[in-house]
């Protein structure tokens, strides 16, 4: 089964991430280090082996389901965060409005300059 083979590669990258975090103490999650290691390994390999794709694709496709248990928790925190909900919602919505405008404006300018230059 190629997917098992690929899954083992993902686990090895994750474990390598754990080792790096453990020995260097850098404040980055082992998953992110593992992601960069996988990306680097694929670049060195010059392509995505079928086994890695067979494991990675279904995992990415079910990401939404994997975070459901965590999201559920927010419904059970409603009392705990009483009094802060307005601050939370306003900061997220207005913050996102500002950051969307910033990204669009900046990238539009930069791409124009890049094409001109």
């Amino acid at each position: 089964m190629p997917a098992l083979n690929g899954f083992l590669w993902l686990l090895l990258c994750w474990l390598a991430g754990e080792l790096i975090v453990h020995y260097t103490g850098i404040p980055v999650s082992s998953g992110v280090i593992g992601m960069l290691l996988l990306c680097g390994a694929l670049a060195i390999n010059g392509g995505v082996p079928e086994s890695v794709a067979a494991a990675a694709q279904p995992l990415i496709a079910m990401l939404a389901m994997l975070i459901m248990p965590g999201v559920t928790g927010v419904f059970f925190m409603i009392d705990q965060l009483a009094g802060q909900w307005t601050a939370i919602i306003i900061s997220l919505i207005i913050g996102t409005l500002f950051s969307v405008f910033t990204t669009l404006w900046l990238l539009q300018r930069l791409m124009r300059d890049d094409h001109a230059g």
């Binding site: 994750w14 999650s29 992110v32 593992g34 990675a56 990415i60 994997l66």
Partner: peptide, 14 residues
Amino acid sequence: LTVLLGPATVALGM
């Protein structure tokens, strides 16, 4: 299920 988030994050390297 959530333990799979580790390898799923690594999978984003693809």
